[in-house]
């Protein structure tokens, strides 16, 4: 945000007499979102990993616990299923992040 607010186009917008609110929420926000989204995408994986531990600590019946129990019981179809579920969720979130990039900043494109 600090970087973006110092950039030329913000100065231009201000010079045009655009309201501060509009400058912040329209001009800056879009540009400041890019690193935020990158971090969201990357941290989602850590969060998924973290839920496994959290579910165990607080005894929540989630996919992570399901998977741990399945590993302990050597129930492989169940392990495969839960891994597939979590991994696809992770991939989908990353795909969405990539698509959102292009949506927010049309300069980014994939060939």
């Amino acid at each position: 945000m600090l970087e973006v607010i110092r950039s030329d186009f913000v100065r231009t917008a201000r010079a045009k007499g655009v309201k501060e609110k509009v400058v912040v929420f329209v001009h800056c926000m879009r540009n400041a979102m890019i690193p935020v989204i990158t971090v969201i995408g990357m941290n989602f994986g850590f969060l998924l990993g973290g839920t496994i531990i959290t579910e165990q600590v607080f005894a929540i019946n989630g996919v992570g616990r399901l998977m741990i129990d399945a590993i302990a019981d050597r129930d492989f179809p169940m392990v495969q299923g839960s891994v597939l579920l979590v991994a696809s969720l992770f991939v989908i979130v990353n795909l969405i992040v990539d698509i959102v990039y292009a949506f927010i900043d049309p300069r980014i494109s994939y060939d």
């Binding site: 989908i92 795909l95 969405i96 949506f103």
Partner: peptide, 12 residues
């Protein structure tokens, strides 16, 4: 593009 983004998000 918006549709493309919105649909999976809604589904999710």
């Amino acid at each position: 593009l918006f549709l493309l983004v919105a649909i999976p998000i809604l589904l999710l």
